[in-house]
């Protein structure tokens, strides 16, 4: 007698939805182990005996941002790994094409001194900002109370590294074209000392030192990242006027990743709003962090040449993102 073997239509955990789950749901949901017990995120001594259980309890279980079922969150893009690598491979191919074409025509040699000053001061030091954004996303990966949030943050972590890498690549290209300048040499000092960057440095350092998972999400994904990326969009826009079409095209491409981050972040806010009380918590954090972002964008965009109200354009985009979150109602 063989044992009777029965099948099921779908995961029991998704069956109550009464619809066919997407591949995203099949492979991304319910993989989180950290939220089974409020004082025992990890399967060892509960808080306070084990420091990491105390850490998770303080920063997640006792966060002002609460939801009874974070695992219910869904990424509006339903991004999965095998789609992510496919999309990003295409995008990287596109960027390779841009770099190749511009290199062929000796693009960097044609840039004016005035614009090279800007690139040296306001573009290539960005890799340090990208590092901070990458570290911030990586914090969300490990602290998030749902596998669907971890996945979104994981792809964002990859995206930040993507642009850190491209920024480093461009620094080396510019260094080769203009070895008398500081490309590839002075970025760290500029990031640490140049007044135009100090607002962003303060914003990001303070974000990294924020460990409550909800506040970190707000500070990073609703405020610091949109502000930093919108400022970069302005740099790219102005670059076109200085015959640096390459920077503009690369910045446009970077904004695709930034917008994906905003889509899932807005999705997570919408999901959070199912729980009464979260609207005030989220609004409060946004109000707390926006002044630092405003200061950062103003300092950075104020240093751009022929800026044409770049700061207001960047801040306007961030505010419009905030208005879209439905927190005012």
């Amino acid at each position: 007698m063989a044992v009777e073997v029965k099948g099921m239509k779908t995961w029991s955990g998704l069956a109550k939805k009464r619809r066919r789950p997407s591949e995203y749901e099949v492979v991304t949901t319910n993989l989180q182990t950290r939220t089974r017990h409020p004082d025992q995120a990890y399967e060892l001594s509960p808080a306070p005996l084990l420091e990491m259980n105390e850490f998770y309890k303080r920063h997640v279980s006792e966060s002002p941002l609460q939801h009874p079922d974070w695992e219910g969150f869904r990424d509006p893009d339903e991004m999965i790994y095998r789609v992510y690598t496919r999309i990003q491979d295409q995008q990287e191919q596109y960027v390779d094409g841009l770099l190749d074409e511009h290199n062929e025509i000796g693009h960097d040699a044609t840039l004016s001194d005035a614009w090279l000053d800007v690139l040296e001061r306001l573009y290539t030091p960005r890799r340090f900002l990208q590092m901070a954004l990458q570290m911030g996303a990586a914090y969300l990966v490990q602290i998030a109370p749902a596998s669907t949030i971890t996945a979104c943050a994981g792809f964002q972590d990859g995206d930040e590294f993507r642009w850190l890498s491209r920024c480093a690549y461009r620094a080396r290209e510019l260094q080769r074209a203009h070895p008398e300048r500081g490309f590839g040499e002075t970025e760290r000092r500029t990031w640490e000392e140049e007044p135009a960057w100090q607002g962003f440095r303060e914003l990001l350092e303070k974000t990294l030192a924020t460990y409550d998972w909800g506040e970190h999400f707000v500070a990073l994904n609703l405020v610091a990242k949109p502000a930093a990326d919108e400022a970069h969009r302005q740099l790219g826009r102005i670059g076109r006027r200085f015959d640096d079409g390459l920077l503009g095209l690369m910045a446009d491409n970077q904004m695709r990743d930034s917008e994906r981050s905003r889509r899932w972040s807005a999705g997570l806010v919408a999901f959070s709003l199912e729980n009464e009380g979260n609207a005030a918590v989220l609004s409060g954090w946004i109000e707390k962090w926006v002044p630092l972002a405003r200061q950062a964008v103003t300092a950075y965009c104020g240093a751009l040449p022929e800026q044409d109200d770049a700061a207001n354009a960047a801040l306007g985009a961030v505010e419009s993102f905030h208005r879209s979150l439905g927190l005012d109602a």
């Binding site: 190749d100 690549y169 620094a171 640490e192 303060e202």
Partner: peptide, 28 residues
């Protein structure tokens, strides 16, 4: 292709440490 090989630029992608100035190093 006029693209740089990875070994020609990757050292810069690994030069990303800075000294925090607005919070103590131990806070980050």
């Amino acid at each position: 292709m006029a693209l740089l090989e990875m070994h020609e630029w990757y050292d810069l992608a690994r030069d990303t440490n800075w000294t925090p100035g607005y919070v103590a190093e131990d806070e980050i």
